[in-house]
Design a protein around this nucleic acid. Structure first.
Lengths: 206, 206
DNA sequence: GTCGTGGCGTTACAACTTATAACGAACGCG
DNA sequence: CGCGTTCGTTATAAGTTGTAACGCCACGAC
């Protein structure tokens, strides 16, 4: 997206194929779930034969990891853009909700059921911390007069999820509450959306 | 569990095998996730050869459905027992949390990422309604003086998740809030428990 | 006690999947 | 224009789910 002219033609083609593979992968995830993702089916859809895709992705795991990375990147950019355009915490919540509703499978790929053996690469956890940092920024810019509870100070000892962000215990507490409530409301809304009406909005006090 | 004597020996044996299969299945889910559940591996672990298990389960789907049914049944009984022993809503929340912490995979098998194509049988949705009914009972027995909000009345039109329980709009609203907050907090606690300290408790106002 | 039937476990097979290896062809760089 | 990297192919190995056909053994009736 920066300077396409500097790319050699082969790299261009390679990038296009990788992009199309990921596109088909998203479609497949939407129709059959992430666990049913089949490299063979994707290759067949693209008019190529099975093992050809291994020139572009080391295996199923790398493809899924790439999808997760893209999803995190997209969410981080969305949240960041909302924050930079002057949105408060409620605005961030609405941005996250809109992002989740736009593609529920993408949301569940990130925040869904954790896979026991899987450990995300460092760059992905970095993006995750970036999202949390933006949220903490928003809360820092919106101070509260609520007292610091014992639980909030207790959070000081377990703030690995906050990275090295310089936020007060009370802010950490508020961010954590924000996160749990929004995640719970979104999970319910997205799963119920499949069988129910699909346009509910569960209010979350920010 | 009612009258074992009335069972014919073959049915006894059949029940034992089915129970052991489910046991191994839970172990496998705990170590590799539900999507990696392999009938072949289970059969090999039990000293039998692959297709033998198809005498006991029609296929992978039926086995997983059975596990889901057992999980729902266990949760419904737990919640029901807590309610019958006089626990209030906070007590129900603690019971649900303890149940989830005792076996996170069981919790995620029920409330985790939804599988696109999958539709639960009627008897399972009935158990789910039973859980909601118990929660609504607990809230009905603990009246509140909060006013009925417009959103609460709006819930009247979309109360399929509540079944035919005779609860007021305000009660429906409180139950829904309970559910989203607890679900969000538990999801965060359970996923963070894998990499973090593992004994956090996120407070949820009931 | 003997005998027959039905359930059980087996091997064989088909149609999948992921993934690796080896080969040929084509594209692009120098 | 040639040479090399890269691509796509087929062949192969080791898995998976699930079906089909066969033999055996135990249970239950008589």
């Amino acid at each position: 997206m920066a300077e396409p002219g500097t790319k050699t033609p082969r790299e261009r083609y390679r990038g296009q194929v990788r992009a199309e593979v990921k596109e088909r992968a998203w479609e497949q995830i939407a129709t059959a779930g992430a666990s049913a993702l089949s490299l063979n089916a994707i290759a067949k859809q693209m008019g190529m034969s099975g093992p050809a895709l291994y020139r572009y992705f080391a295996g199923r795991d790398e493809l899924i990891t790439e999808l997760i990375r893209d999803a995190y990147r997209s969410l981080a950019d969305t949240i960041r853009a909302a924050h930079d355009s002057g949105a408060d915490v409620a605005g961030l919540a609405h941005a996250l909700r809109a992002w989740a509703l736009a593609d529920p499978h993408r949301y569940f790929l990130i925040y869904g059921t954790p896979v026991p053996g899987y450990h995300a690469p460092d760059d992905i956890t970095a993006i995750s911390s970036e999202i949390m940092a933006t949220l903490l920024d928003a809360y820092t810019a919106q101070p509260s007069d609520r007292p610091t509870t014992p639980f909030a100070t207790h959070l000081e000892d377990h703030r690995q999820w906050a990275g090295d962000h310089p936020a007060s215990p009370a802010t950490l507490h508020r961010a954590l509450t924000f996160w749990t409530r929004l995640h719970g409301a979104l999970s319910l809304e997205l799963t119920a959306g499949g069988r129910g009406s699909g346009s509910e909005e569960v209010r979350v006090r920010t």
